[in-house]
Amino acid sequence: MSSPNATVAAPAGIAQILTEAPEAAAARLSGRLAAQAAATDQEGNFPTEEFQWLRAAGLLAAPLARSLGGADLMQPAHTLDLLRTLKHIGRGNLAVGRVYEGHANALMLLQLYGQPDQIGRWAADAREGHLFGVWNTEAQDGVQLEPLENGRYRLLGSKTFGSGAGHLTRPLITGKLPDGGWQMFILPTDEQPTGLDTSFWRPLGMRATASFRVDLTNAEIGPEDLLGQPGDYYHQPGFSGGAIRFAAVQLGAAEAVFDETRRFLRALGRTDDPYQRMRLGELAVLIESGNLWLRGAAEHAARPATDAEATVAYANLMRTAIEDICLKVLPLAERCVGARGLLRPEPFERLHRDLTHYLRQPAPDAAVADAGRFVLQHSEPAHSLWNA
């Protein structure tokens, strides 16, 4: 483990303001991210340069409200823009997409539950280029908030799967209060000590996310760092409904597999093979199905009458469908490219590892079972089930 006094340097420079739509900026950067992905694919590494590109494009501020200098990406009416932005970043580099999705999630939560002065302060941090994220997962030594006499709190314990550890300067973290309440707070890691156990992260894929175990023991926070009320983190539909965001990143990786498969076959002159044509047709069906799910999720999120239960159920359907699409894309692409295509420096090996690992999101069976419970409890015909 690194020294418990290890700190994170604040970002250099000021983030640029968006001069184009977030989706267009992400699409423009996608190829550049892909070209750099192999260079960062090392355990303990992090796509530092890539996030400088996102900063320069204004994408770190994009999830903020327009009044805060952003592009309103987290508003329901702009859900499709958000999902496509995430997809393009994931298409370029799944590790970058994973960390950026966490950044967007944190900005959504702070805008939803923060006090006006907190929102203004944290929004300024995002505009200046600070990287946010969400650290919620923990093991037996989970994070606790110990009250001090001066009204501040001393932190005890650790988080696991702390994506971006050592690079996030404003992680949103959850911890347990003495009364058992589950409290969100944002820790300025460029000012407070954290210890990083890099040996925790020995993954199949997603090597460059730096998802270490983070020891927060002896860091201190004040009331101004607490976000919302105890239990707010798990409020629905925000908690489970957010699955549509990581599913969009996953679909981006599936699109990258599709694009690389076509490129590889063209380079080999195999485009006239009838079996390869059949496989590419099947891949095209899968990819377009995923894009239709993105549109459906966005339309559902934009409906003002949609209740929380229906939103969660639809998000569970969408994440299940995208997972199934990705799990079908991978073996089809393998058959197309054969053993030669799975040799480095071809990108398939990394794409396959990264996507396989990132698909292992928590509780996949419970998600689809919850969607089944919802449809069993409602009697509307199928054509209007999600419009009620």
Rank of each mutant, 00 (worst) to 15 (best):
L94P: 05
D41C: 01
M74S: 11
R303C: 07
E288P: 01
L351P: 04
V249M: 09
Q118A: 00
A248N: 08
L172M: 15
A243K: 03
G164R: 03
G129I: 09
T40M: 11
H88C: 04
C326S: 10
L80R: 15
A123Y: 02
L18K: 00
I287W: 01
T306D: 13
P362M: 14
I186R: 02
V249F: 08
Q36F: 07
K159Q: 08
L343K: 13
A308T: 03
N218R: 07
E349W: 11
V214W: 00
P237L: 11
L265I: 10
H235Y: 10
A25P: 04
D273A: 11
D125E: 10
I287E: 02
L80G: 06
E309G: 12
A37K: 00
R154L: 07
A305L: 13
A310S: 09
T7V: 14
R152H: 15
P116M: 09
S384W: 11
N93F: 04
S289K: 15
L355N: 02
W53Q: 11
L351Q: 05
E43V: 08
L83G: 01
P331V: 06
A27R: 08
D365M: 13
V368P: 01
A369P: 03
E220V: 15
A15S: 15
T194K: 02
W122L: 02
H235T: 15
A126V: 10
E220P: 06
A382D: 14
D232T: 10
V312Q: 04
P171Y: 05
T7L: 10
R98H: 14
T261R: 11
T160V: 05
L59A: 09
A310E: 10
T194P: 02
E282P: 07
D190G: 13
E309Y: 07
Q75L: 13
S30P: 13
K176P: 12
Q118D: 00
H130M: 02
G296M: 06
P274N: 06
P4Y: 05
G290Y: 05
G281F: 14
L177H: 10
R277Q: 05
R66F: 12
A315N: 07
Q236P: 07
Y314T: 04
Y100N: 03
A26R: 07
P203A: 12
V214A: 00
L294Y: 08
H103G: 12
G129Q: 11
F132G: 01
A126I: 07
A284M: 09
R262Q: 06
S240W: 01
Y113N: 04
W182F: 14
P381S: 12
T320A: 12
L107A: 00
L33S: 03
R319Q: 13
V96K: 05
G281Y: 12
L355G: 01
A315V: 03
Y100G: 03
E255N: 05
P147H: 06
L355E: 03
A10H: 13
D72W: 11
F239C: 09
P381H: 12
